[in-house]
Design a protein around this nucleic acid. Structure first.
Lengths: 208, 208
DNA sequence: TTTCATATTGACTGGAACGGTCAATTTTGA
DNA sequence: TCAAAATTGACCGTTCCAGTCAATATGAAA
């Protein structure tokens, strides 16, 4: 177990800089081709500092995996099992995801990218650490949902797929527009509003 | 204007090998980081041959852009303007796209990836050559559609977005399953069948 | 079978970029 | 004021890059 004490003692703002720079590079290039030179340039720190905080590129990657795990676990805790309406539950998770993306714009892209990661140096650790946590969260997300609200004869699995694809699509679109927005709070509202329009459309289709 | 006479005289099977190997590498790594060594390895040809067919990595990339343009233009021609039902028109295009993907599995991933391409060496050419053709196709795809079939008060743009996200989702899912299928014809049928289930769901929601 | 132009190969090049190091410098706070 | 801690970037050996080219294989014409 690695303790990232050097890095954890940094000011949060600086930690954020470095995490985002690293995430961006790993998303863009994958573990092996990712360049630490590029990371330090984007994070505005020196090469020496990066290797002072983390001992190697691999350690840095593992830190991000660990951090990402915690993000998903937090998300998982936020799922309210007493809310049995699928749309409402998904809406809440979507909003939480959105708030995380304010701080780490490519956080979920990074987590998604780990699924394609092929480097033998990190593949096993991803499988062991990340996949179970991810599956657990997905299971909880759809647990105790009141599926009786759905129309007869509808393929619920397919309906959920459309929901997910739509959520994903809104997220992608929103992120592109984000550059022009300053007020995070207002954007959160706007995101919810946007989702509601799509949700209404789909609810009309899927519900009785 | 470059004439790829050396490459064009190759047997179609070999051309396909090389195109797919190159596409795969460019999708994975982008223009600059893409490795010609990796491409020749995957295409089962020698380094010398690749640089005999194409004079440089850039020429190879430009060839793929050119080839991709032609694929989109073909797709564009297949759009039947007398078919005014949005679902039917999209279904046909989806099927055509699917058939292209039989031969070049990552063709559309490659075309999509050019939008993110940042290398100054090829960026302008992408903009000049590919973007106009793409926009033209998108315009035709939604031209003369009978939008009166849609329910009052529905946001047609959003509905189309959901359609696109769903199409994209099915495509991704289908591609993952493709490995296990041998019979291309049958898979085409299956793809259509699959799309119809989702289309029915969405038609119920969007149409009067 | 011989000949010869063409197609293909992969070892090789100079140079760029890599992950990681460390002596020198700057910052910090007591 | 000054020593400890944090930060820097030039530097190291290595790896990988795009592209070259002399050597070899191929195949059709004679």
């Amino acid at each position: 177990m690695i303790i990232y004490s050097k890095f954890n003692n940094l000011k949060p703002e600086k930690q954020k800089q470095i995490i985002n720079a690293a995430i961006k590079e790993f998303v863009q290039s994958g573990f092996e081709k990712a360049s630490t030179n590029e990371i330090v340039k984007r994070a505005n720190i020196s090469k020496g500092s990066l290797f002072n905080y983390f001992n190697s590129k691999k350690d840095l990657y593992l830190y991000l995996i660990e951090y990402g795990s915690q993000v998903i676990m937090n998300l998982n805790e936020q799922i309210d099992l007493s809310e049995t309406d699928l749309f409402k539950r998904i809406e809440r998770v979507g909003l939480q995801k959105f708030y995380v993306q304010q701080k780490y714009p490519q956080a979920f892209d990074f987590l998604a990218s780990t699924k394609q990661e092929e480097s033998v140096e990190v593949k096993d650790i991803i499988k062991q650490r990340l996949n179970p946590i991810y599956n657990q969260a997905m299971n909880k997300l759809y647990k105790d949902i009141d599926y009786s609200k759905f129309r007869e004869g509808i393929d619920i699995e397919k309906a959920i797929e459309i929901l997910n694809w739509t959520m994903f699509g809104i997220g992608e679109k929103g992120l592109k527009e984000l550059v022009t927005f300053e007020d995070i709070g207002k954007f959160g509202e706007k995101y919810l509003e946007e989702w509601n329009v799509y949700a209404e459309l789909l609810k009309y289709s899927f519900y009785k």
